[in-house]
Design a binder for these strands. Structure first.
Length: 269
DNA sequence: ATGGGCACCTGGCTGC
DNA sequence: TGCAGCCAGGTGCCCA
């Protein structure tokens, strides 16, 4: 997916078009997503004003007067703001029609995305309640990284990808973060030194915030709310590359938990 | 508690 | 040209 920077880019692109606007209706063309979009959702949303947007991990939050929509982009989802009469294309799942004449349109070929609505505190929602701290907030600090890696036998890559320990970092940014922290992806988490844990925190933050600045990473499907791709691809050091962008050594690819990891055997230990 | 594997999907690319 | 096989930005859930 869309990892944290892509979700945040989508949120920022959306916000000025939706904040303060009233929802006319929700039209669902293809309810089959990771979880089926409930039939009665449209009735709950019609007429509600959108008060603002937010994000928790890779979930985009759309706050309404009396509840919150939780949007997940899955692996291939996009949420765009379009004139409501824009012709639909393949894999368009739903339209949130706004009073302004625009629609929020969700497209997702692989259908790993989702749409939930909660009338309560979204932080208590089962999908959000057990998530790790936000990586760009102060509580995600060297002490935290040190603590969660102690006595943990799983690889550091798995720790970065485990949403109960670290959120927002997906497969691309995990490789990029480990490259910048000079740590090989197969290292056991418990083998990290204090200094390595500190570097990892610093680089997670740097990678995510730099990616947000340039609109995220587009490999294939991803576009922001305005339909524009992200440009972080040009700043990748190892992910999907043949040669390390720093030293030119052949990049190694390995499979961990069924996902590809990339690293430079010279720059990373 | 921790870790591993599977499941859910479509589409693009490679090689025979 | 056709088709099998593999790969792709995620994560919830079940089992050991």
């Amino acid at each position: 997916m869309p990892e944290l920077p892509e979700v945040e880019t989508t949120r920022r692109g959306l916000d000025p078009h939706v904040a303060g606007r009233r929802i006319v209706t929700l039209t669902v063309h293809e309810p089959r997503l990771r979880w089926r979009v409930p039939e009665d959702l449209a009735a709950k949303l019609a007429g509600q004003r959108i008060t603002g947007t937010g994000r928790r991990a890779k979930y985009l939050l759309i706050r309404l007067e009396s509840g919150t929509l939780l949007v997940h982009l899955g692996m291939s989802g996009t949420l765009r703001i379009l004139p409501a009469d824009t012709p639909r294309v393949a894999h368009d799942h739903y339209d949130l029609l706004l009073e302004s004449g625009n629609a929020l349109r969700f497209n997702d070929p692989r259908r790993f995305g989702s749409l939930h609505y909660t009338s309560g505190d979204p932080r208590q929602h089962p999908l959000l309640a057990r998530l790790a701290p936000e990586p760009l907030e102060p509580e995600f600090d060297p002490d935290y990284m040190w603590r969660i890696t102690r006595r943990r036998r799983a690889s550091i890559k798995q720790v970065l990808m485990n949403s109960r320990l670290v959120v927002g970092v997906g497969n691309i940014y995990a490789s990029e973060t480990l490259f910048r922290a000079r740590i090989r992806p197969r290292r056991q988490a418990q083998s990290l030194s204090r200094d390595e844990a500190t570097r990892l925190v610093k680089e997670v933050r740097a990678v995510l915030s730099q990616a947000i600045k340039v609109g995220g990473t587009t490999l294939r499907n991803y576009v922001g709310a305005d339909g524009e791709p992200g440009y972080f691809r040009q700043r990748l050091y190892v992910y999907g590359l043949k040669e390390c962008r720093v030293c030119g050594t052949a990049v190694r690819r390995l499979t961990q938990q069924g996902r590809s990891s990339y690293y430079c055997p010279i720059c990373q230990r």
